[in-house]
């Protein structure tokens, strides 16, 4: 690398930067196609379909629902995806008079969730049903403090359905088992704690399905188009993986060196 480039760019991050720019470009191209009217067919996500059915089930049972966004802050993409789902679920629930409860470890997420639920009631045209401080509770910043608090919250409110969308760890064992004991339907979307979640959940969104869900609920063709862009990027990375394996078998570490940070 030339000394001039070394002065401007952090060492070993050129390929990463190129990949990031490529991702942004491909996402934008897909978005532009969507804007021009191209529609991509995406298979229905079973977990997402079950969520909408679960809201109706809660209305029939006369019980509330709960959406948990996990134990991380606003800097985590999984939490952001969870908050998007919270907004949509809360709106649909508010439309038919079902209350949506939530809690989290992060105080920022708590403050944000309160705003999201309030906006959901406004968007549903049911502002009069919104009760400040009723739907969002905070039990503490620790993982298990939250887990026990959330479990108590579940026992108290007895939700008909609990949607776990966000970042979770072992806390799901406490919260999901409690959810099972009150007869709640469990729908999970996460990248972490998958083995534990798969044991307890009725429906599971695996890996990127969490992010796809947050795009699909918007039903906006332009947003859904970005999922297609995501697939193009995966194809490129798949090619890099295959080329890397072939080169490694041939005795070259070129791809490994390229990907090193």
């Amino acid at each position: 690398m030339s000394p001039l480039v070394e002065q401007v760019l952090q060492e070993g991050r050129i390929f990463q930067l190129t990949l990031l720019l490529l991702m942004a470009a491909l996402t934008y191209i897909a978005y532009s196609y969507g804007k021009r009217g191209k529609v991509w067919e995406i298979r229905p996500l079973e977990g997402l379909e079950a969520t909408w059915e679960g809201i109706g089930r809660a209305a029939e049972m006369g019980r509330p629902i709960m959406v948990l966004t996990g134990i991380s802050g606003l800097s985590n993409a999984q939490t952001i995806a969870g908050l998007t789902v919270l907004g949509e679920v809360a709106q649909r629930a508010a439309e038919i008079g079902v209350a949506t409860h939530t809690t989290s470890t992060s105080t920022q997420v708590i403050a944000f969730s309160e705003g999201v639920i309030k906006s959901a009631y406004d968007a549903a045209g049911k502002s009069e049903l919104y009760k400040p401080g009723e739907y969002v509770r905070w039990f503490g910043g620790g993982q298990f403090v939250y887990a026990v608090g959330a479990a108590g919250y579940i026992l108290e409110t007895k939700p008909a359905m609990i949607v776990f969308m966000g970042y979770f760890l072992f806390d799901v064992i406490v919260t999901m088992e409690t959810a099972s004991r009150v007869g709640a339907q469990i729908i999970t979307g996460t990248l972490s704690a998958l083995p534990e979640s798969s044991v307890f959940s009725d429906y599971l969104l695996i890996g990127e399905e969490l992010y796809a869900a947050s795009a699909m609920i918007s039903k906006d063709t332009q947003v859904i188009a970005t999922i297609a862009g995501q697939d193009w990027i995966k194809l490129i990375l798949l090619i890099i993986v295959v080329v890397g394996v072939i080169l490694k078998l041939a005795g070259s570490d070129a791809i490994i060196k390229l990907l090193e940070v």
Binding site: A77, G207, E208, Y211, S218
Partner: peptide
Amino acid sequence: LAITGGIGGVVLSIRILLGLEKGALR
């Protein structure tokens, strides 16, 4: 999981920057 999750996270961030996500207080 790592690859798809990572890509999904980056694309979600781009969606937020483009103002496509409803998440920010809708």
